[in-house]
Simulated assay, not measured.
Amino acid sequence: MDRKHIFEKVDHTLLTQTATWEEIKQICDDAIAYQVASVCIPPSYVKQVKDYVKDQMAVCTVIGFPNGYNSTAVKVFETKDAIAQGADEIDMVINLGLLKDKQYDLVLDEIKQIKAACGDHILKVIIETCLLTDEEKIKMCEIVTQAGADFIKTSTGFSKAGATFEDVALFAKHVGKNVKIKAAGGIASFDDAEKFISLGASRLGTSRIIKLAKNQEGTGY
């Protein structure tokens, strides 16, 4: 698979708690250079990043991250604020406790409210697959589809594990035709990236693919 085809599906990501502006600026520069899908950064940097990249790159940020247990009202406020600051795409974390309690209507309602707050901006729904049963993953494919979100996303990258090939294949089998798939967390090689894409992923959340490309070109960090 052509690497350009891989790069254009990458959300180039830096969400560590210690991320500095210089580090954020570097991934923005790399995102523009490699023409990736977006740069995914903490909400506190959205305005600064948008001012920096302008229209050269889509800006993605995270809501209710990484645990998902903020109240719905807080997540909706976070979403509206992020968009007002310049975010083009929103990656939200579901309330996993509500899912475990089978309070599906509440999970659905929260996603719907956040999608409404997004307007025509892209919404990706993080379900943290490593903490779920296959039954729960399938249920979330149904809920995300019903809610009208744009993507279902495997992981935050901050829990016990990241994306697996099995989970992306499961999503592809059960998600609605209008919902795309984002694999995130632990994507460490071009072979991994190609496999996830072949299984149905339209986006890859990773900090490593561009680093790997730069290192192979002798321009590593």
Rank of each mutant, 00 (worst) to 15 (best):
Thr129Val: 14
Ile152Trp: 08
Ala163Asn: 08
Gly162Asn: 10
Glu142Arg: 05
Lys180Pro: 01
Thr133Ser: 15
Lys139Gly: 10
Gln146Gly: 04
Lys115Val: 02
Leu106Val: 00
Ile143Ala: 11
Leu98Lys: 13
Leu106Arg: 11
Thr133Gln: 13
Phe158Asp: 09
Leu132Ala: 07
Cys141Leu: 04
Leu132Val: 05
Lys173Pro: 00
Gln113His: 13
Leu106Trp: 01
Ala188Trp: 01
Ala188Phe: 01
Glu135Phe: 10
Ala117Glu: 02
Asp101Thr: 11
Thr164Tyr: 11
Ala183Thr: 11
Thr129Ala: 13
Cys118Asn: 04
Ile187Lys: 00
Lys173Ile: 00
Lys100Phe: 05
Met92Cys: 10
Ile181Val: 09
Asp134Ala: 02
Glu89Met: 12
Leu132Arg: 04
Met92Leu: 14
Phe165Ala: 14
Cys141His: 05
Val107Leu: 05
Ile114Cys: 06
Lys100Asn: 05
Val168Asp: 02
Tyr104Leu: 13
Gln85Glu: 15
Leu132Lys: 06
Gln146Glu: 15
Ile143Asp: 09
Tyr104Pro: 02
His121Lys: 15
Val107Asn: 03
Lys177Ser: 15
Val144Asn: 01
Ala149Arg: 01
Ile127Ser: 07
Gly176Ser: 12
His121Phe: 06
Phe190Cys: 04
Val93Lys: 00
Lys100Ala: 11
Gly157Asp: 03
